[in-house]
Amino acid sequence: MIETKSLTCVACPKGCEVTVEYEGDEIIDIKGNACPQGQDYAKEEIVAPTRILPTTIRIKNGALSLCPVKTTKQIPLENMFKAMQIIGDKEIEAPVKMGDVLIENILDTGADIVATRDMPEEI
């Protein structure tokens, strides 16, 4: 089935409205992009959109009860809720340093979950 989707290109702040016609993973037509970068963007957005996931993880004995974390690289958008579940099920222990790996290779995406700040122990 041929589908169309309109996207806002975020490759630059101009934000062109790009319309893509596609069937499954096959791109049929891309319209509305003011430059070639918009085409690459639209293709990736249809075939496999990926994002960084920033969230928090529960931490024991920390100055705060949550520590902010992120994925070290973009992971598929469709995996977001699954990744949230895995991170939500886990509790780590203070202290941690910014950049410490807390979960390795989440969902086999090749991305680790790392702390995005130092979290000292509760004083």
Partner: peptide, 22 residues
């Protein structure tokens, strides 16, 4: 502000709010 999108101008890399502050 735990999300990413900070620091692209100043550090030329994308950081989260806590990382920028740290």
């Amino acid at each position: 502000c735990i999300h990413n999108g900070f620091g692209l101008h100043y550090f030329k890399e994308e950081l989260t709010g806590p990382e920028y502050a740290q």
